[in-house]
């Protein structure tokens, strides 16, 4: 018995060590970026990587308030604008996708109509083609429609990222809800709208939250749409961060500081709705 306990605790320790090792492996790039954001340029380019250094907030000051300008290496001061653009475009794109995508997903899950599967597949197919394959026609259309370099244009084109994701994932969640529950609600006098809002939506709430976060992360990380269809007024932070690559050197410290700030919103969002996220991501994992 004692031997078995010892074996079990040793096994536990090994598992913990393995998990800790994996956590360090997985988190190391992030930790390194955070460390870089507090280093001076000389420490960053040191031939022997420095783990111990005098931390400084200079990189954060430079990207938030500007002011670092030494010969070629000019600090960028537009980072806050790009960050704001990312927030406006991504939040609006996800909200719009939820507004349009959730009823669509419900319809695709519950109703029978012609071309139902074709329509669903068409939504999914938006994710098949690489964005670069369609960007030139979209660019020309946007120039003609005066949507180029506008928030509306970018929110609209981001639907190519967020809408298929939301429709397809939420459709799966709706399909997992027992039809009998909805039928019972109808027997109790609910209209289809009542069933949708009072029964179906609350049941898929965790799934809705996790899908919205996923859509937010995909949209937040998008680069090519912002680059080609935006301009200095509307570039998101993914494009803006590249501004720290100057002609003959990379401002690694400032780029790291910008990266740290840029990853905060998805991180905070994920932490706040962690409860829903775990439930949402495991919904439908066990079918009875």
């Amino acid at each position: 018995m004692k031997q078995a306990q010892q074996y079990s605790s040793k096994r536990q320790i090994l598992i913990w060590l393995a998990l800790a090792g994996y956590a360090v492996f997985a988190l190391f790039p992030l930790i390194w970026v955070v460390m870089m954001s507090f280093k001076s340029h000389i420490d960053i380019i040191s031939p022997i990587p420095k783990f111990i250094f005098t931390p400084s907030l200079d990189n954060y000051k430079a990207i938030l308030f500007g002011g670092q300008s030494t010969q070629y290496e000019v600090g960028q001061t537009d980072f806050l604008l790009y960050f704001k653009n990312s927030c406006i475009i991504t939040i609006s794109a996800v909200l719009l996708s939820l507004l349009a995508g959730v009823p669509a997903a419900y319809a695709l899950a519950r109703y029978r109509f012609r071309f139902k599967d074709d329509i669903a597949f068409t939504f999914l197919s938006f994710r098949f083609a690489p964005e670069i394959a369609v960007i030139i026609p979209i660019y020309i259309l946007y120039q003609k429609l005066h949507l180029y370099n506008t928030y509306v244009g970018l929110i609209f084109v981001y639907q190519l990222i967020t809408l298929p994701l939301i429709v397809w994932i939420i459709r799966g969640y709706f399909e997992d809800i027992s039809v009998e529950i909805e039928q019972a609600a109808k027997l109790d006098g609910y209209s289809w709208w009542g069933v949708f809002t009072k029964i179906a939506l609350p049941l898929v709430k965790p799934g809705l939250a996790s899908t919205a976060v996923l859509a937010f992360i995909f949209a937040w990380n998008n680069f090519i749409f912002g680059l080609i269809l935006g301009s200095s007024d509307t570039y998101p932070s993914t494009v803006g961060t590249l501004g720290f690559i100057s002609y003959e050197s990379v401002l690694w410290g400032q780029m790291a500081a910008a990266t740290v700030i840029t990853i905060l919103p998805p991180l905070i969002l994920a932490v706040f709705i962690q409860k829903y996220l775990v439930r949402g991501l495991t919904m439908g994992a066990i079918r009875g």
Binding site: I136, Y139, I140, L227, G243
Partner: peptide
């Protein structure tokens, strides 16, 4: 004057799209 600034690699990609659109 309105302007847009990008780092070199992205600049080269975007200018080709802009010029090829002939807009």
């Amino acid at each position: 004057v309105e302007y847009s600034i990008l780092s070199e690699e992205e600049y080269r990609e975007k200018i080709i799209i802009e010029l090829s659109s002939q807009s």
